[in-house]
Amino acid sequence: MRRRSFLALPAAAAVLPAPRRTRLTVALDGTGDHTSLQAAIDAVPAGEPAVIGIRPGTYLGQVIIPAAKPLIELRGLGRSPSDVVIADNRANGTLKPDGTPWGTSGSASVTVDGAGLRVTGLTFANLFDEAAHPEITNRQAVAVLTRADKLVFDRVRFLGNQDTLYVNGGRNYFRDCYVEGDVDFIFGRATAAFERCHIHSLNRGSTPNGYVTAPSTLRTNPYGLLFHRSRFTSDAPDGTVFLGRPWHPSQDPEAIGQTIIRESWIGAHIPAAPWTDFGVWPWEEARFAEYRNAGPGATITADRPQLTDEEARTYTVDAALRGADGWNPCG
């Protein structure tokens, strides 16, 4: 009897069918499957991967991607990200029908609870008009709130004023994106890596003119907000915008915020002392650092902690996103 070698190839296995993937198109003029993004998301079977193409236009109304709808891909079908706009216009202090305020999280134009979301080539915006609503003092108006893991945003614009981008859970990767706002407009406790992004601070006509980041990274998380080879610009006067301040939600002492900016270009709107306190919480107790930045706002002073070369090898985009499962959205 001939003995079979353990190195011999097995008989051809049956080819398994590719997992089902829902494909939908959203168009304002009714030529697609749905006229709103929320309707398309609602139509995706729970747990089933989906690709949703969105034709040019401005789509108004809150959008929620629930935890039961992971692995959704949103594709803007315009020539540029500005052709497809997903937007809403409420703030923290805007009142619900029951007379209570929406709050910061409730103000989000888009809330992402579904893991594995991928977005390419479109714009998310919160269109809340501060000047038109002087009666509203709580003006936090979120464009996107993320609360899920393994999220990828590629060539996406995020537009707002205060609290534009609320990254509050999991690992988030932003590549070639544009983020615009004034006060704490990139904030939260998530691990969020920004690569080749354009970060633009609006001129709100006051001093200080604003704060780019407000991280609330938990002490146990080694990675918070990381900006690599990005560009920080503004129309505000020189030296009037801070790079960040440490946010402690509900005065949580375990929120030891981290913002690291490396190998990036920083404009003159950033002062020589770029970090500042947040209420009673001093910036020196947060995890703020820079590494090999350039530009008129990147001068090295005693108030600007710098990573050593050895530390810089630890704080890379790959390392921040890898996690225990080896996730690599950068490849």
Score class of each variant (00 low, 15 high):
Phe242Thr: 06
Pro10Asn: 09
Gly297Gln: 04
Ser107Pro: 09
Pro237Tyr: 05
Thr94Ser: 15
Met1Phe: 01
Trp281His: 13
Asp29His: 08
Val51Lys: 12
Glu135Asp: 15
Arg229Phe: 06
Val212Pro: 06
Thr104Pro: 00
Leu202Ser: 08
Phe153Thr: 01
Asp303Arg: 10
Thr31Cys: 04
Pro97Gly: 11
Leu225Lys: 10
Leu95Ala: 13
Gly279Val: 07
Ser206Phe: 01
Arg23His: 11
Ser250Asn: 15
Leu9Gln: 08
Ile54His: 08
Ala91Gln: 01
Leu151Phe: 07
Glu284Val: 13
Pro305Thr: 12
Pro49Thr: 08
Glu48Leu: 08
Leu117Lys: 03
Gly188Cys: 04
Asn172Leu: 06
Glu290Ala: 09
Thr316Ile: 06
Phe194Lys: 04
Gly257Tyr: 13
Met1Ala: 12
Leu71Asp: 14
Leu60Val: 10
Ala115Cys: 09
Ala273Asp: 14
His269Lys: 02
Val183Thr: 06
Thr164Trp: 11
Ala141Val: 00
Ala46Trp: 05
Asp163Val: 00
Ala268Ile: 02
His269Thr: 05
Ile256Arg: 14
Arg118Leu: 10
Arg75Asp: 11
Asn293Glu: 03
Thr25Tyr: 06
Glu285Ile: 11
Thr35Tyr: 13
Val212Gly: 07
Phe278Arg: 11
Arg139Phe: 00
Ala286Met: 06
Ala320Met: 15
Arg75His: 14
Thr146Gln: 07
Val142Gly: 04
Tyr166Thr: 02
Gln306Thr: 03
Arg155Thr: 11
Asp29Arg: 10
Gly267Thr: 00
Glu285Phe: 06
Thr100Lys: 14
Ala18Gln: 13
Gly76Thr: 10
Asp184Asn: 15
Val119Glu: 03
Gly53Ile: 02
Gly57Met: 13
Arg287Phe: 05
Val84Asp: 06
